[in-house]
């Protein structure tokens, strides 16, 4: 069964002559327990796909379904239990006036769940933070710790799907490694399904099984990570992105072939 099913997703802003189409017929199928990556450059529409799933845009057309339920345009509580999101900027995704405990208790209160205390303790432990973090406020935490709290907040409702919007791109490389390890470990332990947006091919091949490459609102190519690593990409755009990433192995000397 497909955990996430996106069929013919279209989205445009403005109307009449000002209309600009952001997404063109996007099709993505993600199986349960799989992690799927969306890569592309800025403006490719990769984050927009995630935001449609997260109910931030209401005027898309096409078919979206999650865990077998087809999605309405407005957010409902069922979707929140199925699916949660981790954001790019750990400094902007936690409410600055709420302590960690308040932030983690909020979803439990909304869904009227019991055993709040216990759930908070165990989720903090899962993301590698001890109980003393409960009473701290976000400004007392480092970027990596904040991102751990954001992951804990996403997981406390026990969703099956995590939407990851560039979860490590605002972090230092050494912290990025810790968060990626954590995400990988959580996925294996909890059997989560990931849909991750990133511009970093190294990160995507590390964490994801399959990858879709997006450009200007189209999916250019969908390919498995191992295939991508073994130079199995067929589309020139994918090859170009790969080449830019492989620059570690060759001196930069060729400008002309990449001039647009």
């Amino acid at each position: 069964m497909n955990m996430i099913n996106i069929e013919g997703l279209n989205l445009s802003f403005g109307s009449g002559s000002n209309e600009s189409k952001i997404l063109h017929d996007v099709n993505i199928q993600v199986k349960a327990g799989e992690s799927f990556g969306l890569v592309g450059e800025s403006g490719s529409g990769k984050t927009t796909v995630l935001r449609c799933l997260a109910g931030q845009y209401h005027h898309w057309s096409g078919q979206l379904s999650v865990n077998g339920n087809s999605l309405q345009h407005k957010l409902d509580k069922k979707r929140c239990i199925d699916m949660q999101m981790v954001f790019q900027d750990p400094y902007g995704s936690l409410h600055p006036r709420h302590s960690i405990e308040t932030a983690l208790a909020e979803p439990l209160k909304i869904h009227k769940m019991d055993n709040k205390d216990q759930r908070i303790s165990s989720i903090l432990k899962k993301v590698g933070l001890d109980d003393s973090f409960r009473y701290r406020s976000p400004h007392q935490l480092s970027g990596g710790q904040r991102q751990r709290v954001a992951i804990a907040r996403a997981l406390i409702l026990e969703p099956q799907i995590l939407l990851l919007d560039e979860p490590t791109s605002a972090l230092d490389v050494s912290v990025q490694a810790e968060i990626l390890n954590l995400l990988k470990e959580l996925k294996e332990k909890e059997g989560l399904t990931y849909l991750m947006v990133t511009h970093d091919l190294g990160v995507v091949t590390y964490l994801c099984d399959r990858v879709a490459v997006m450009q200007n609102g189209h999916i250019v190519e969908t390919i498995s990570s191992s295939n991508l690593a073994n130079h199995g990409a067929s589309e020139p755009y994918t090859k170009m992105l790969l080449d830019c990433c492989y620059h570690t192995e060759a001196r930069l000397n060729d400008t002309t072939s990449f001039a647009n």
Binding site: V173, Q176, A177, N181, K184, L201, V203, Y206
Partner: peptide, 17 residues
Amino acid sequence: LLKAPPRIGDIRHRLPT
């Protein structure tokens, strides 16, 4: 720092921290 970022086709299961 050199070892921390994952590379394309990384076969390491865990990244060194």
